[in-house]
Design a protein around this nucleic acid. Structure first.
Lengths: 225, 225
DNA sequence: GTAATACTTCATTTTAAACTTAAGTGTGGA
DNA sequence: TCCACACTTAAGTTTAAAATGAAGTATTAC
């Protein structure tokens, strides 16, 4: 078991592969050439690394014409990546504190749900209003919480039929607190983008909170972003 | 950030360091030599690796005589290790460790306070009930803790006038976890012997838990010894 | 058809870091 | 006081794996 653990960690730990895995955290699929550019290496090299990641079942590949699109193969993978990122020493986080309100730390996507300061605030607001309650390893949705999500127009019944976790805490690497992940977190993020509360920014995991979004978060949850 | 992520993952990913981190998952502290044996490498090599892990704030080290005991420095660390291990393909049946229940390991005195499995269990039970809280290098006694000790008939005011440390963690050689030492630990041991909960054995540091003691520990702290 | 693009494969070179050898320091017990 | 032990440090060596160079297979565009 420890051999597998070691193999997995060193697989993730190579600088080029780490960049690949990090890039995919924005939930987009990337082609081999894009990843080569991003990781600042050659196509041959990225091809070799991608092959290893696919073989280890960390990534899946989808051919589309002459392009190959890569993505995580399983939902556990972004969780593990966040957990590792979370280990980076606290002192380094403080060093960057001058630029505290960097967009990426303020509001970003973590795979398919909302993270950063806003993501954590949102989760804590829901906990504070008892829409969510924290259990051992998951969140539970209360009566009022179910009502609240339904009023937003999110179909909870459909979410519950999905195979993935319904509502799960995910540790935030910049805030060091939990934010809401799982099917519910993903649905909430896509709902907020769809309704123009949030806007994704090209080439980055950063997310912009629109004026409409600020108003909505204040009305819905008393949040001041 | 991705550089830190990569550095952290490759730090974990080295086979020897992975073994070290894996060994510590049983929540015990290990010495450098033990880890060298476990990882099947030389003391020099393990020393180099341990140094790197400490420098990265993944481990802390505690000197006790000529031994150095290593442990995780933060609670996020086992969380991340588990997340990585979860990425590995299905594992075999979990190995079950058989620990020998020699009396000296089970319950003994350590200088003037209680040690061994029972000593550690006792300390952990008090921490769990928030009678004690762990600070940097000492234990603090909470309101409820003060009440609990007073109800047992231990005079805390008198203990506080003593010159020695009031409540101090001491690393247990058989359990590799901390147990309560200092004036409070000493007072608790002598109280339990005085009340017939424990009985010392001649010519040995082993201590016997009497039937009365078993009952008392269950009633007072929910312990099952 | 030809040319360009996207990606792969394989043989070779490079290199970072793990390991080894050897010589330390500090502690504890006889 | 002396020696054994636990661990560290520094310098030199080895080696696994990442990067490179050259050649090759599809796929799309003109």
């Amino acid at each position: 078991m420890e051999d597998q653990f070691s193999a997995m960690a060193s697989l993730i730990g190579d600088p080029v592969r780490a960049k690949i895995l990090w890039a995919l955290m924005d939930k987009r699929a990337y082609t081999a050439t894009e990843l080569a550019l991003y990781a600042n290496t050659t196509p041959q090299n990225i091809s070799m690394h991608l092959h290893k990641l696919v073989k280890a079942d960390l990534l899946t590949v989808q051919s589309q014409g002459r392009h190959k699109y890569y993505n995580y193969s399983r939902s556990e993978i972004p969780y593990a990546i966040e957990a590792i990122a979370n280990l980076a020493p606290e002192s380094d986080a403080k060093k960057i504190k001058i630029t505290e309100e960097q967009p990426i730390r303020y509001c970003r996507s973590c795979y398919d749900h909302l993270a950063g300061k806003v993501g954590v605030m949102l989760t804590e607001a829901m906990l504070h209003r008892n829409y969510l309650t924290k259990e051992q390893d998951c969140y539970d949705l209360s009566e009022e919480g179910q009502k609240w999500f339904s009023e937003l127009g999110i179909d909870l019944e459909r979410l519950k039929t999905q195979k993935r976790h319904f509502a799960k805490p995910c540790l935030d690497w910049s805030e060091r607190k939990h934010h809401l992940a799982g099917a519910l977190g993903a649905a909430l993020l896509s709902h907020m983008i769809y309704n123009g509360w949030l806007r994704t920014m090209d080439g980055s995991r950063s997310i912009l909170v629109t004026a409409k979004g600020k108003q909505g978060l204040r009305d819905c949850l008393g949040m001041d972003v």
